[in-house]
């Protein structure tokens, strides 16, 4: 049952992304990507990941604001013609090769509904689920993983976020500092 619901939502996501990539107007393209992210959040909710669903919704709104900042008051001329023939052919060859290797890799995955930690007794998720409440005192195992077991990972995430925002601010600065002058 849940597979059918997720499949339908994924088909909607695929349709939305095709519309987003193929529409002429840039503003429409940006607005067309927002439902894709919302469907993604609904699928997270169905898959038992409410934390990620909340994060996805917030990130979706923020990304819409950022992307509209890129296109508002710009000259929204449509770029119609595609790349030259050789580039197009090589691109489709690349996508085809990627498709073949991906299909080959998909055959070796465990079937949907059996996560890999149930097949492997030494996987770290077993310990997180069994001992998480006792060791960290958090009922939500996801927050006990990101804030306690893998706290350095979250520190690295904060570092990357800080660095990227710093880079964005450095690039957006209007007046470059003049060398040798005060």
């Amino acid at each position: 049952m849940i597979e059918i619901v997720i499949g339908v939502l994924l088909v909607f996501m695929i349709i939305g992304s095709i519309i987003c990539l193929e529409t002429r107007d840039l503003l429409s393209a940006i607005i067309a990507i927002v439902p894709v992210g919302y469907f993604c959040g609904i699928i997270y909710l169905l898959l038992g990941a409410p934390d990620i669903a909340i994060t996805q919704m917030v990130v979706e709104v923020l990304s819409l604001i950022i992307l509209i900042r890129a296109t508002i008051r710009r000259d929204l001329t449509t770029i119609e013609e595609e790349r030259d023939f050789f580039g197009l052919v090589s691109t489709f060859a690349l996508i085809f090769v990627f498709f073949i290797f991906g299909m080959e890799a998909m055959r070796h995955l465990p079937p949907f509904g059996t996560p890999s930690f149930t097949l492997n007794p030494s996987a770290p998720s077993n310990r997180y689920l069994m001992m998480g409440l006792k060791e960290t005192g958090a009922g939500n195992i996801v927050s006990s993983v990101i804030l306690d077991y893998r706290g350095y990972d979250t520190l690295g995430e904060a570092t990357i976020l800080f660095t990227s925002i710093l880079g964005a601010l450095a690039l957006l600065r209007v007046y470059a500092r003049k060398r040798g002058k005060k």
């Binding site: 038992g48 990941a49 770290p124 998720s125 997180y128 195992i141 996801v142 993983v145 990101i146 893998r150």
Partner: peptide
């Protein structure tokens, strides 16, 4: 369900 991919995807 598995909590480890959820934590990583949140990051």
């Amino acid at each position: 369900v598995d909590p480890l991919p959820q934590a990583m995807v949140l990051t």
